[in-house]
Each structure stands twice: as structure tokens, then as C-alpha cells.
């Protein structure tokens, strides 16, 4: 299953970054596909990006809400919040585990040999503050003399933007190099810090600072596709603790908002069929699926 997940992550990454003419055009993709909302964190200023980043688009819409209202357009981010909510309602943070290019990058970085460390659990709450403050409130309320807000998260924090767009565009467009200053260097430091952290800890950005992950985490208890624990079968051997890339103790908190449904606990750890995948309460795989597979094998 891990092999399948890696393939899905790769394909999703290519679908969201499918414009490979950028080395020749030296510009970003500007076609109609950019109206589509990427499920994961993927900067739309990345030269290869074929879709728009939901967080970037939302901040831009919220930042321009005063000007939009003044011109009779009620652009409050309906389309983006609707798209994000639709994906969140069905899959929740499963998107982080299966379709986020930046999450995939962090997983690959974590495979590099190095000392490995755990991330303090308390830090997980920081991403909700970043979502509220940097993605919603500051773009909406901190406006310039023209009534225009900035995309605060993208501008001051987002390491995905620096990695996927900032650095490649500086290489592709030498003219931009003269314009870099403190802002770029501060973001470069943030990006480098998260890359180094990702080598030593599993998915640090997803767990600590990703506002998109925080949004999807809000659907932790009500998403359609989710993992379920069969308490009668669980022996509390804690094997699921060892394999979870998000530090979830699944047998203790099966509805944990950090769960990215990577299925590692179900396929790599649990020997007692205590964990299954369900859709709106109906079993998809797991105990019943394994029983069925065994029954089919034995005829």
C-alpha cells in the first residue's frame, strides 16, 4: 500500500505541476487549468504549476474584498472555500498524505540518513493560529491606503512558495535577482529550516505550520473517508504508534485530527485487523476486506 501511495503522490505532484515548457518560456503557466484549485499546498507561482494554490487564492480574494465590494463584486472566497471544504468533507487530511506535493517532499527528505527526533505534540496547535491570523484575519484587516490586503502567509512564511516558485524564478528570470531583499532572505531561512527539520523529523511543516492542513484537520471527525478502530480487536500493543508519520497514537485517539490516512498503521503495524478504512461509516477495507480477500483465495 505504501508503494501505491507513493505512486499516487507522484502522479498528483505531476498533475499539479504539469507545465514542463517553463525552461523555454521562462515563465509560469497561464492557461485555463489555473482556475482549478489544487488539493494540496502547491504555489501557483511555481513555473510548472498547472493549478492554483487554495491558500494563495483565498488570501488574494480576502485582501481584495474591499475593492471588490466597491466595484459591486462580492468575492469573499466562496469558490475557494467551497472547493477546499468539498475536498475536506470527503477526504480531510487524507489529502495531506496522498496528494500534497510539499508533504511528499518532506517524506522524501525524511528518508535521508540522519538522527531522528520527535516533534513536541503541543506545537500542532500553531498551525490553527497561522490559519486564522495569517490566512484570514491579516489579509482581511491589515490593508494599505488603497484598501488592499496582502497574502500574509505566502509573503512572510510559506516555504513551499520559496522552494517551488521563489528559487526557480530567480534562476529563470535573472532580472528578478536585483529585486530580492530582506523578505526573500527571511523566507529562504524559513524554507531551509523546514527542510533541515524535515530530514530529522517526520513532516514538521504539516504538523506544525501548514494552514491548509489545519483547515482539513477541522474535518477530522466528520470526513467521509476515515480510519476506524475496532476496540474489541485492539490489544493496545501500540504497534501503530511506531509507524505513524504524524505522531498519532491511533489506538488512543482514533479521531485524531492529525491523521493523514496514509494507512501505515493498518497495513504495516496492526496484526489484529483492528483498523479499517470506512466511507461514511461503511467499511471499505481492513478487517472485512482482509477476510473477504482470504475467503476468495481459499475459494
Amino acid at each position: 500500500m505504501e508503494f501505491v501511495r507513493k505512486w499516487v503522490q507522484t502522479v498528483a505532484g505531476f498533475l499539479m505541476n504539469g507545465y514542463w515548457l517553463f525552461p523555454w518560456t521562462r515563465n509560469i503557466y497561464q492557461g485555463p487549468l489555473k482556475v482549478l484549485c489544487a488539493p494540496g499546498l502547491n504555489c501557483y507561482s511555481c513555473p510548472a504549476a498547472t493549478t492554483c494554490c487554495p491558500l494563495g487564492a483565498l488570501q488574494q480574494l480576502l485582501g481584495g474584498v474591499r475593492l471588490a465590494i466597491a466595484s459591486g463584486q462580492y468575492f469573499f472566497g466562496w469558490y475557494i472555500v467551497g472547493a477546499m471544504g468539498l475536498m475536506g468533507g470527503f477526504l480531510g487530511r487524507m489529502i495531506c498524505g496522498w496528494a500534497c506535493p510539499f508533504g511528499f517532499c518532506q517524506e522524501l527528505l525524511h528518508k535521508l540518513p540522519s538522527p531522528k527526533f520527535e516533534i513536541p505534540r503541543g506545537l500542532r496547535h500553531l498551525k490553527f493560529a497561522i490559519l486564522l491570523l495569517f490566512v484570514i484575519l491579516l489579509p482581511l484587516l491589515a490593508v494599505d491606503e488603497f484598501g488592499l490586503g496582502s497574502p500574509w502567509f505566502c509573503k512572510y512564511i510559506c516555504p513551499a512558495g520559496t522552494l517551488e516558485a521563489g528559487v526557480p524564478l530567480l534562476i529563470l528570470q535573472p532580472g528578478l535577482r536585483e529585486t530580492i531583499g530582506f523578505l526573500f532572505f527571511s523566507k529562504f531561512v524559513i524554507m531551509t529550516a523546514f527542510i533541515a527539520w524535515a530530514v530529522m523529523a517526520s513532516r514538521p511543516f504539516c504538523r506544525v505550520a501548514c494552514p491548509l492542513g489545519a483547515f482539513y484537520a477541522l474535518f477530522g471527525k466528520v470526513r467521509a473517508v476515515r480510519l476506524r478502530l475496532d476496540a474489541h480487536k485492539c490489544t493496545n500493543c501500540n504497534a501503530c504508534h511506531q509507524v505513524c508519520p504524524m505522531g498519532v497514537k491511533f489506538n488512543e485517539s482514533p479521531d485524531d485530527t492529525e491523521c493523514i490516512a496514509c494507512l501505515a498503521c493498518m497495513h504495516q503495524a496492526c496484526k489484529f485487523d483492528a483498523i479499517s478504512l470506512e466511507f461514511c461509516g461503511l467499511p471499505l477495507t481492513g478487517a472485512r476486506g482482509k477476510r473477504l480477500a482470504a475467503t476468495e483465495k481459499t475459494g
Binding site: I28, V35, C43, P151, C154, K155, T179, K187
Partner: peptide
Amino acid sequence: QARQICLSCIGVG
């Protein structure tokens, strides 16, 4: 918006 390079977003300009 998505068709333009967001310079402030990527920390350039």
C-alpha cells in the same frame, strides 16, 4: 490572479 507571478508571495520584489 493565478496567471500572474505573485512577486510578494514568493518573497521577491
